[in-house]
Nucleic acid binder design. Structure first.
Length: 740
DNA sequence: GAGCACTGC
């Protein structure tokens, strides 16, 4: 078992863990206590950000862009937009937008603010996310929206003329859409001197964002002002570090300001392992048991990387819980282990989020959901395995993979903060302090580790043609950009001059789908199966429709078998959909067939939206009824870049009855990189060995194999027929027996 | 031979 040290401290006495400031629980410095107040106004006034009202309004008046550095819980998301509202920034027919990276956040914050403003949600204060526009044109002054939906709005109104202020919240998360939004806003402010941009970010990113938005560099080509020094701002004691000239200098407007607001998190003491651990799941469980024995109250949150690890940790904790029950007395505190990951059905997620029953200490084994999307109250201890499962894109092979990687220090800090929401807490990192100091400071922005085809298509649709000259907050690798352009060209979205093609490229950009699926959907008209492809695209846009979650694997497999077809997973989804429709979208039917009604309803929403878009583009989607080949051809029209052929069977194991793995390779090649593909276990074609297939997603597991998910069997002669520019001759699978 | 980080339009 690992023992922990705290920086600057001697080794602890018991269990290797020291809790010097904890027992009295009162060592928190000048923190506002959690006393309940019924008066909303009073509560608002107590939020740290409220003290900075004057400064914020002053800076907004004088600077096009202001970066707000605010720690968690300082109230910026709810209070700052209200300050602007009350200061009259939404007068004159324009409104204030505040973007959020996630839908739930947009809804909950808007609801809260409407309450504080004493108005009906959807009137003066509203929100807008996909499928839900709870705002009233001409009435709504403050709108919370997802950054993705604001990007969509920009397609119709590139200068965002409907708004006087755009607040980009949680910009430090550096999601694809926030980075894209910031790049675009940088261009917008050059043409809209009346527009104000507020960016809320963590301290690490603030300088970078401010430098990026400096208007003096916007028009200048390539040159960046190195003299933008941080000096004391005009507001005296406030932490204003505006990179501005003297008062009244017209340069003020052009230079971004930075304002720091302290949070109201309680201090969290950090501990490190003295020696590295071999298995962080085991160490996390052992550490949990020791903490529990220490008897300090508070729930425990363990950060792991995936479903499997969470379930393993819970299983180990259950064993320990049993042991503790036998040892402890009748009234002893018990532990209640619970898993938490995004794929978990809502009811089980709630268990992890709700307070534990009396006499129980909740121990939640969670993935990254608990770092950003979901907040657990009552957590006093965070045990952090310091790893994360991350999406990475390899531009050489053109494939994305999910890989477990060490987290960044910024991410670790965020996770630690989860222990200090209600009282001072502890964070136990399952690595040595030395190892921790070698972690990268910040997480690599998504922009630099994702496939960019969709992003490039969106930019093209906004009239930005020169990708290489676009100012990115984090420039993506040139190779990834080239790959994106190649893919869009092969799909027909770009012409030979890399300009958005008409009408195809414009139509693709219009659809809320990744480019490959958009291409399939638009090609479906040609094959007379628009209805079917809309269904398939919708099913691919949602979480798995199969009701996952705990020990029902067999039942799911049996249910799945009822709908599966030789054509593959996508046609299987089609069968599921048709059967669900025939049942009258019956919830009971869905339950009997191990399907999630909630996910199916969401798919129905998306399907409806896709059909609406097709009609708006002047295409009436028709159904091909039983022509499965037409459906598969339309699928191929979008996914041909992911066509693979069977190479043979590889025998890696020494077991006599081991049947080997059917190995596939990309028809178009992988740029000299060796890539071994196989069908993922979840596929209905797993036991089958179609000689050629297209897949929708692939992920690289720890085995080194790229595993293809959502596969569709195709005929080799379809490729040159459907994508003649990519496949000139009839491509047949090479007859090649096993590999090594 | 057994599995799916997380968002978003």
């Amino acid at each position: 078992m690992g023992s922990f040290i705290k920086p600057g401290q001697r080794k602890a006495a018991a269990f290797g863990i020291s809790f010097d400031t904890d027992r009295d629980g009162t060592s928190a410095p000048a923190v506002i206590d959690g006393e309940k107040q019924s008066n909303l106004l009073h509560q608002r006034n107590r939020l740290p950000v409220t003290k900075y009202q004057r400064e914020i309004l002053y800076l907004l008046e004088r600077h096009s862009c202001t970066v707000l550095v605010g720690e968690t819980g300082c109230g910026k998301t709810t209070q700052v937009p209200q300050m602007l509202l009350e200061a009259g920034w939404a007068a004159g027919g324009r409104s204030i937008a505040c973007t959020q990276p996630r839908r739930v956040a947009a809804i909950t914050v808007a609801t809260r603010v409407a309450e504080e403003q004493g108005c009906t949600l959807g009137r003066e204060v509203g929100y807008k996310i996909r499928f839900e526009d709870v705002s009233t044109p001409g009435v709504t002054k403050l709108k919370y929206c997802t950054d993705g939906s604001l990007l969509r709005e920009m397609m119709d109104d590139p200068l965002l003329t409907a708004y006087s202020v755009i607040m980009v919240d949680e910009a430090h998360e550096r999601s694809l859409s926030t980075d894209l939004l910031l790049g675009l806003l940088r261009k917008v402010i050059a043409q809209r001197p009346d527009l104000r941009i507020l960016i809320s970010s963590a301290s690490l990113e603030a300088e970078k964002v401010a430098a990026f938005l400096d208007a003096r560099t916007v028009k200048a080509t390539r040159k960046r002002d190195r003299n933008a020094s941080s000096g004391p701002g005009p507001m005296g004691d406030a932490l204003v570090t505006a990179t501005n000239g003297p008062d009244g200098d017209p340069a003020d407007l052009a230079t971004p300001a930075i304002l720091s607001v302290e949070g109201r998190l309680h201090p969290v003491q950090v501990h490190y392992l003295e020696e590295p651990c071999a298995d962080y799941v085991v160490t996390a469980v052992e550490t949990t048991v020791e903490l529990h024995r220490e008897g300090i109250p508070g729930d425990i949150l363990i950060f792991l990387t995936g479903q499997e690890e969470c379930e393993r940790a819970v299983a180990l904790l259950e064993e320990e819980a049993g042991r503790l029950r036998r040892v402890g007395g009748k009234n002893a505190l018990r532990i209640m282990p619970l898993p938490l990951f995004a794929g978990l059905p809502a009811a089980q997620q709630m268990l992890a989020l709700e307070a534990a029953p009396r006499n129980y200490r909740k121990v939640v084994a969670a993935t990254n959901v608990a770092e950003t999307s979901l907040t657990l109250e009552g957590v006093t201890f965070v045990i952090d395995a310091c790893h994360v499962k991350q999406r990475t894109y390899n531009p050489r092979t053109g494939l994305e993979a999910l890989l477990v990687a060490p987290i960044s220090q910024a991410s670790a800090q965020q996770r630690a903060g989860r222990a200090g929401r209600i009282r001072p807490g502890h964070c136990l990192r399952l690595c040595t302090q030395e190892a921790f100091s070698k972690l990268q400071q910040a997480t690599v922005p998504e922009m630099q580790r994702a496939e960019l085809a969709g992003t490039v298509l969106q930019l093209k649709a906004l009239g930005i043609d020169n990708m290489m000259r676009f100012h990115w907050l984090a420039p993506p690798p040139a190779e990834a950009m080239v790959r994106a352009l190649e893919l869009l060209h092969s799909l027909g979205a770009l012409d030979d001059d890399a300009r958005l093609s008409k009408p195809l490229g414009c139509q693709m950009a219009e659809l809320p789908l990744e480019p490959r699926l958009a291409a399939s959907l638009l090609a479906a008209g040609r094959f007379g199966c628009g209805q079917e492809i809309a269904t398939i695209c919708a099913m691919l846009s949602v979480h798995s429709v199969w009701a996952s979650g705990g020990g029902q694997r067999r039942a799911i497999e049996e249910a799945q078998a009822k709908f599966s077809t030789a054509e593959g997973d996508l046609v299987t989804y089609l069968n599921v959909w048709k059967a669900w429709e025939d049942s009258g979208r019956n919830r009971k039917w869905a339950e009997r067939n191990m399907l999630s009604q909630r996910v199916l309803l969401r798919a129905a929403d998306i399907r409806g939206q896709l059909l609406y878009h097709l009609r708006r583009l002047g295409m009436e989607p028709i159904s091909c009824e039983n022509e499965v080949a037409a459906v598969c051809k339309a699928i191929t029209a979008g996914l041909f870049s992911y066509a693979t052929r069977l190479e043979g069977t590889i025998y890696e194991s020494v077991d006599a009855d081991y049947s080997g793995t059917n190995s596939y390779s990309l028809v178009r090649g992988t740029g000299g990189q060796a890539v071994r593909l196989r069908i993922h276990k979840s596929s209905v074609l797993w036991r089958v060995r179609p000689s050629m297939l297209v897949f929708h997603t692939v992920q690289q597991g720890p085995s080194g194999w790229h595993e293809m998910q959502d596969v569709t069997a195709i005929q080799p002669e379809w490729l040159p027929e459907i994508a003649p520019h990519m496949f000139q001759s009839v491509t047949r699978p090479r007859p090649q027996p096993g590999g090594t």
